[in-house]
Write a protein that binds this DNA or RNA. Sequence first.
RNA 1: CGGGGUGUGGCUCAGUUUGGCUAGAGCGCCUGGUUUGGGUCCAGGAGGCCGCAGGUUCGAGUCCUGUCACCCCGACCA
Length: 570
Amino acid sequence: MLLSKLLGERFKEKPQEAKSISHIFLLRGGYIRQVSNGIFSMLLPAQKIKTKIEKILREEMDSIQGQEVIFPVVLPGELWQESGRFEAVGSELLRIKDRTNKDLLLAMTHEEAAVHLARSEAKSYTQYPFMIYQIQTKFRDEARSRGGLIRVREFTMKDAYSFHTTEEDLDKYYNKCLEAYNNIYKRAGIPEVICVESDSGMMGGKVAHEFMLLTDIGEDTIVVCDKCEYKSNMEVATGKLEAIKKDEEPIKKVHTPNINTISDIAKYFGVPEEHTLKAAVYNVEGESKPLVIFIRGDLQVNIAKAQKIVKAVLSPFEDYENSDLKFGFIGPYKLDLEKINVLYDKSLEGETNLICGANDTDYHYSGFSIIRDSVAKDFVDISEVKEGQSCPNCEGKLKFKRGIEVGNIFKLGKKYTESMNMTYIDQDGKAKVPIMGCYGIGVGRMIASIIEANNDQYGPIWPISVAPWQIHICALKSKNININDVGKEIYEKLNKKFEVIFDDRGLAPGIQFADADLLGIPVRIILGEKNLKNNQVEIITRDKKIKKLVDLNDVYKEVELIVKMLEDSL
RNA sequence: CGGGGUGUGGCUCAGUUUGGCUAGAGCGCCUGGUUUGGGUCCAGGAGGCCGCAGGUUCGAGUCCUGUCACCCCGACCA
């Protein structure tokens, strides 16, 4: 490729709208252009990177017996009605109508399409297990896209769906896939991606993991133990909770005028916040009674956990005027359970001598002991982990980090196969419902993540496995010799074996170097008058780790060595 | 969906507070020269429905109303 012909202007100003490093360099380097909110076009360099990532994805999926297929982007609404998601999913699902007013949708994920295909093709147990995957456009009408390619509405995703006859078989395959994912990130130059436990969300299923690139601009909070291997998304993270030792005291009603926040109560009674109990009230979708969650005063309710327990969407309860609940003064002692549902967080288990609301405006109780003074029997984990809390598995302390989710894997179980009536005939001649797993990786988000992990102040430093070109030839301008001719000769020779981009523009060296940095090509060959007089050229790697003068006759050999070395390092 | 912000040439922005000549700068682009290992310098040139619609006014980029788009923070995120 001749750089003089490459479309995609590179510029030095920081684009106003871009905040993250990857977004800035993707725009400045002429990789992507925004078309609309969360919708981008990709120019040649980005497209080439994308293709290379896809090649890695294909090889790794094929290596775990995946069969590549392709599903439609536009699906009939009725297919999603089978699984119940046509109604269940909110406005992120873009629903459209065709000319006959029939419901269509732009697929945001393809479980339904996968089951639709698999249920008519895999009717015998002898065909199991199998995995089908595709690399396809997805559309999610995100409430808020951001960060360039990090969170967009239209994107390319590798999604895979495996089908099994037993849980054990799914478990086995799940682990194989987890390994393939680690290979993918390693090969793409982001070996630092870690695998964490995660929430399966409304996808359903019990076990799920996310692959996270730890970086400050990440959207998710990751909880990691400073001693052991415990790693988890905040949504599902747990910490060790032990009852705080306090002497039991008799329960006592105390006048607390206008004191209704935990920090005020703690101050008023002169105790730390963990000696209080608080109530959080939610509306439960499809349920008329509000849900009251009791939790220790120093902790927050983790709504994702709570939603999983009640298996419904929660929203904050606000209608105190038409209820018996006294905002700011709700407590578990002598609470009327007729018109509400109640959950007790694990943090309250065994607690004694707490301050809690008295269900009477401007009054609290002190000396409340959960066993002695309430009907609470079951305690469930609904609390948000706090930084510094003890690890659930060891004596370590939990630390928070930020991460970008670059992939996820789910054990879906029978959620889709059952609702969509997929069966196979087992050895015993009986129809059975297969068990499913699904596995996704966003390609664009991977591009952004690779930049986030590999860059310097001048631009991206592409790992050679995904770099748009392997070699960048800079022919500097000269009055005395026609360097472009020399460059062309080297270009044509190298181009037979490598992917080469040749800067034949003859501009000021600063411009050529700056552009080369923005394109981030791993190996750069610089042709300048001074060195050429001695029959030499300079070879430098984008990360500046190798920088040497090479005899003109040895260029091919030398490049071959460096490329091999870079490839081997991944 | 809530809060904040921005729309002026391809990019970054000034001008809007206090309405007033033909709307500016730098970068980029085109032409000529100059320079030649980290965005050289000089001269000339092209390019703007001032987001859109309506209104006030002798006069609107500037004031008013509406509307659209985009960005940031949050909620949400299969």
